[in-house]
Design a protein around this nucleic acid. Structure first.
Lengths: 160, 160
DNA sequence: CGGCATCCTTAGGGATACTG
DNA sequence: CAGTATCCCTAAGGATGCCG
């Protein structure tokens, strides 16, 4: 065990972040459920139709129905009609830019689960770099393009 | 909206990943609750004592108690006694290596929430690179050190 | 201060059945 | 195929109270 990551720059811990202002809490309100995450996982894996989501997640119809509508309302998914030549109209759920931007969260969870919770290497999946074949993870980087170590983080609070 | 991220390399979608083998699902079993994430957030922000976790997360005592024990049992946190000179013994919860390794998940959620859910810029927090001051996010990278674009991902299934 | 036991409420989620 | 409505069960979480 190493030293805990230290974040500075907040005067009083009670000043604000634990409330609704916290973007982490806000994110969790929307995608913090198991069902939402599993549906997003399948969206990244290429699912677009209702029955694909139910079959591949193992979630029940009503749950998938609710989550899809919530995610659509929030702007994470977009529902569109599409018609292949000679086929009838179908519904497709596609990731929006907002939805795609969540990919690192899923990749980070995947990587962490594989590293620390893998039930004896069996039956697990791996996300790899196409071509290169190496497993893909996630790395801290600031908007200036610098790689960031865990102990170089500051927490900044923007008061209202 | 752009094209969905495509993952290839799995023959039959039903072949395995949706079940217990999925490391994402496994991760969610452990840290997929709001309370677990908020407690981890505070651990990264420097909290170590019981009352810090309750005060800063707004969670009730019993919930904090349960989550702390679960996270400790799983190896994410370690409980240790410490004694400052002249003080009585106190309990401290510290992140293990396994726990620190989850940091990218929290940072990714924070960044996503800030970008897409920000409630009007007010009262929110930001994680910045110390010194440089730029906001910190997360970036896909493979074990070979290559930066990875979202459309360069392959899903690999390792059967039992 | 640092918790756990108890009780209660609500949100997550499954089963079944029904509609366009 | 693509859902919705209803019903029910379980897990998440708050309030209160007690105890070392």
């Amino acid at each position: 065990m190493t030293e805990p990551i230290r974040m500075t720059g907040v005067l009083d811990p009670r000043d604000g972040w634990e409330a609704e202002g916290c973007p982490i809490a806000a994110s969790l309100e929307l995608v913090g459920t198991r069902s939402a995450m599993l549906i997003l996982r399948e969206a990244y894996y290429g699912a677009t139709r209702f029955d694909q989501f139910t079959a591949r997640t193992g979630l029940s119809d009503p749950v998938v129905s609710s989550r899809l509508r919530e995610l659509e309302a929030a702007g994470v998914l977009a529902r569109e009609d599409y018609r292949e030549p000679g086929q009838r109209t179908r519904k497709a759920y596609r990731l929006t830019e907002m939805g795609e931007d969540l990919l690192p969260v899923i990749v980070a969870l995947q990587r962490w689960g594989n590293r620390w919770l893998s039930p004896g290497e069996k039956g697990a999946t791996e996300i790899v770099h196409r071509g290169c074949g190496a497993e893909v993870g996630v790395r801290l980087e600031c908007d200036e393009g610098h790689p960031v170590a865990p102990d170089e983080l500051d927490l900044k609070y923007r008061p209202a």
